[in-house]
């Protein structure tokens, strides 16, 4: 009699379930369930959506939200929304150069010892709207607009959460909720009261590809962009993951064959 395979399987499944389950234990308001192109083991970023999302980010979010850990060149690197096979070096990509030129960065000190402003280059980091956290809070009624670099990873069910947050503003708080001064009601935000005013409204941006800029569409697009920003190597990672899995599967079969061959003449 040995520790039965069933018992072992039950224990192992329970343990694994616990491991994965605890990491995704969720509380707080219910989220809207929307599907994104990048979900699942085959998922990739919808490039057109990420490009539109960048437009939303640039025209609407950059006034308050920084994205300090990303450089402008990242947009044009492999897996990025503006990657172009003809320009594998993002620094040479004319689209990236044009995007860079739209931003202004502070450089220096110059030979006089003064800081100066210049148009950004692809290798520059995305400039931050505020000099420091205190300045950001002072301009936003005490609330700190979070940095976008890894925001999707930093929230449970990040894509769903941010999509829900962007689309759950209501003009009037429900009965019994007393909005504090300067706060807005958002059903997806824990506690319902959020400092950020509704960032999206119908036709906020004009998409060059003709897509209708509804609030839901823009939210979906900007979440795709932010998901890419948080995890720019995801496509490369999954692609290599499949190759490694296939290799290991074949290797395991060969290994099993060798194992059987070695043990062929031995009772055990």
């Amino acid at each position: 009699m040995r520790l039965s395979k069933l018992t072992a399987t039950v224990i192992a499944t329970a343990a694994l379930g616990l491991i994965v389950g605890t990491a995704s234990a969720s509380e707080g308001p219910e989220l809207k369930h929307v599907e994104f192109s990048f979900e699942g083991v085959f998922g990739t970023y919808d490039k057109a959506a990420a490009q539109r999302g960048f437009q939303v980010y640039q025209e609407s979010c950059t006034n308050c939200h920084s994205m300090k850990l990303l450089s402008i060149r990242n947009l044009g690197e492999a897996g990025g929304p503006f990657y172009d096979e003809e320009h594998p070096n993002a620094n040479e990509n004319p689209v990236i150069k044009a995007i860079a030129a739209m931003f202004t960065v502070t450089d220096g000190p110059d030979s006089e010892g003064d800081m100066f402003e210049r148009p950004a280059k692809p290798f520059d980091r995305f400039p931050s709207p505020f000099a420091n956290e205190q300045a950001a809070r002072a301009s936003n009624g005490g609330a700190l607009p979070p940095d976008f670099s890894v925001l999707v990873s930093a929230r449970e069910h990040g894509p769903q959460y941010i999509y829900s947050l962007l689309t759950s503003y209501e003009d009037d708080a429900p009965e019994g909720v007393e909005l504090r001064d300067g706060m807005n009601y958002n059903a997806a935000f824990k506690g319902g009261q959020i400092g950020m005013p509704p960032p999206l409204f119908e036709d906020l941006v004009e998409y060059s590809d003709g897509t209708k800029a509804s609030v839901e569409q823009m939210a979906h697009d900007v979440v795709t962009f932010m998901a890419w920003a948080s995890d720019p190597k995801m496509e490369e990672r999954k692609r290599m993951g499949w190759m490694v899995m296939i290799y290991l599967f074949i290797f395991a079969l060969l290994m099993y064959g060798s194992y059987k061959a070695v043990w062929r003449d031995v009772e055990h």
């Binding site: 990491a23 083991v41 990040g158 993951g241």
Partner: peptide, 27 residues
Amino acid sequence: FAIVVFLMVFVAFVFFIPDALNHPDNY
């Protein structure tokens, strides 16, 4: 043989759900 089978579990986490065992707050 057992190592290769275990590596398949390991690799599945690394390449497909690298953050499953991590807490979002650590971002």
